[in-house]
């Protein structure tokens, strides 16, 4: 009888899992870890053991494992491709992420991956691109932004709309300023609430969509954030006549195995870890807002 690992390996999408066993974490070492905001941090990791090159696509995730604590799906935030080091940005909200936050240079953790369906950046070539991110949802979108800016000539107008809870929650603030400095991308940042010292925009990220400049019929949208935010973002895009089949969302569910084997992340007929996390909106539209799903 096949072992769980063997069955998981058989279930894993070909070519996306490093090594033969997708259930077996490999040891990775912390190269550096630095705070991003008051409750988020960015970790750079490198493999402890020599192995085949690690390649990933924008929007994919790894399973990060702290012995004795647990394992969770964490999106990669660094530029995609074949890399010697991987970069993860996490929010320290639970026992595992708080443990990972305490890791120092040289500490070792377990890593499995990369997993999941990526943002379809190649399909977006030749189109206007609208990227809408809410909160920590900017993390899985950052590799897509990196790719698009690296190959800027392949895309039409690019809009990056980012909503955060408050000014102190703005992720990648320095990088956003760099992106803002470019003439070939429109970057808008808004916060849900702010005190008197804030001179930027206030309001939810969806309010930025009506004034963004793009050709609706020729636009591909990448959306990531809390489900309610993605729902209302789609509504605004619909008002602008962007077809559902041009909208991609990154779903968040409690992922355990990462390869569509255990069923923890089932979302209707889909497994978010394997069929997603990036899914075309028309495939999940009917499932949004259903309490039982």
């Amino acid at each position: 009888m096949a072992s769980m690992s063997e069955r998981a390996a058989a279930a894993a999408p070909a070519g996306v899992v490093r090594g033969g066993d997708p259930m077996q974490p490999a040891p990775w070492r912390v190269v550096r870890s630095r705070p991003e905001t008051h409750d988020t941090f960015t970790m750079t990791l490198e493999p402890v053991e020599a192995g085949p090159p690690f390649a990933f696509e924008p929007g994919q995730f790894n399973m990060l494992f702290a012995p004795g604590v647990g394992e969770a799906a964490i999106s990669m935030s660094g530029c995609a491709g074949t890399v010697k080091q991987v970069v993860h940005t996490l929010r320290a909200v639970g026992r595992l992420t708080k443990t990972l936050q305490r890791l120092k240079r040289g500490d070792v953790l377990g890593l499995r991956g990369p997993f999941g369906a990526p943002w379809p950046v190649s399909q977006a070539e030749g189109h206007d691109v609208l990227i809408a991110a809410g909160g920590i949802g900017l993390v899985p979108l950052r590799p897509a932004v990196c790719h698009i800016l690296k190959h800027r000539e392949r895309f039409g107008r690019v809009n990056l709309l980012f909503g955060a809870r408050s000014p102190r929650d703005i992720l990648f603030a320095k990088e956003i300023e760099t992106w803002r400095g470019r003439f070939d991308v429109n970057v808008e940042v808004t916060v849900d609430r702010a005190g008197p010292g804030w001179h930027g925009g206030v309001g939810v990220v969806t309010t930025l969509i009506p004034r963004a400049q793009f050709d609706p019929a020729n636009t591909v949208a990448f959306v990531c954030g809390p489900e309610i935010m993605m729902h209302f973002t789609q509504k605004e895009l619909e008002r602008r006549s962007v077809p559902d089949e041009h909208i991609w969302v990154s779903m968040e569910r409690n992922m355990k195995c990462g390869v569509g084997f255990c069923g923890h992340c089932q979302f209707g007929p889909l497994f978010v870890c394997k069929d997603g996390p990036v899914i075309r909106y028309d495939r999940v539209a009917s499932l949004f807002g259903i309490r039982e799903v």
């Binding site: 992420t97 809410g134 909160g135 920590i136 935010m229 968040e252």
Partner: peptide, 23 residues
């Protein structure tokens, strides 16, 4: 309607501590 919708979303505190915790 849109302003009401936007304010409702603001009130939900979407990006609060509950968001992103799947551990």
């Amino acid at each position: 309607l849109r302003r009401l919708e936007a304010m409702s979303i603001q009130l939900l505190d979407l990006y609060g501590d509950h968001y992103g915790e799947h551990e």
